[in-house]
């Protein structure tokens, strides 16, 4: 499965909503209930799924203005073996 699709699935699982519409431009403000707690839950679920670790600065950076799911995928590509195209 392509990396973005795996990320979408992990996020849908955290929200417990298999039909949640997501793409790389989706950001926290586009999704009801995506607050700081949910953000950490998503990060923890991604860490577990991909067996990687995000530094606290990275976790925080991903919540800044202009960041979206594409930013998460970009960060993950650098961490997952074979993640970079």
């Amino acid at each position: 499965m392509p990396l973005p699709d795996e990320v979408f699935d992990v996020i849908r699982d955290v929200f417990d909503d298999p039909s949640l519409a997501l793409n790389e431009t989706t950001s926290a403000k586009d999704v009801d209930g995506w607050d700081s707690l949910m953000h950490i839950n998503i990060i923890i679920a991604l860490e577990k799924h991909f067996k990687v670790k995000f530094a606290t600065a990275e976790v925080s950076d991903l919540t800044n203005e202009g960041r979206n799911i594409g930013s998460v995928i970009e960060m993950l590509r650098k961490k997952v073996p074979g993640g970079e195209p």
Binding site: D35, S36, H39, V59, S60, D61, T63, N64, E65
Partner: peptide, 9 residues
């Protein structure tokens, strides 16, 4: 809001 996105909510 500018530098600490995790806290702003």
């Amino acid at each position: 809001e500018r530098d600490y996105g995790l806290i702003k909510g």
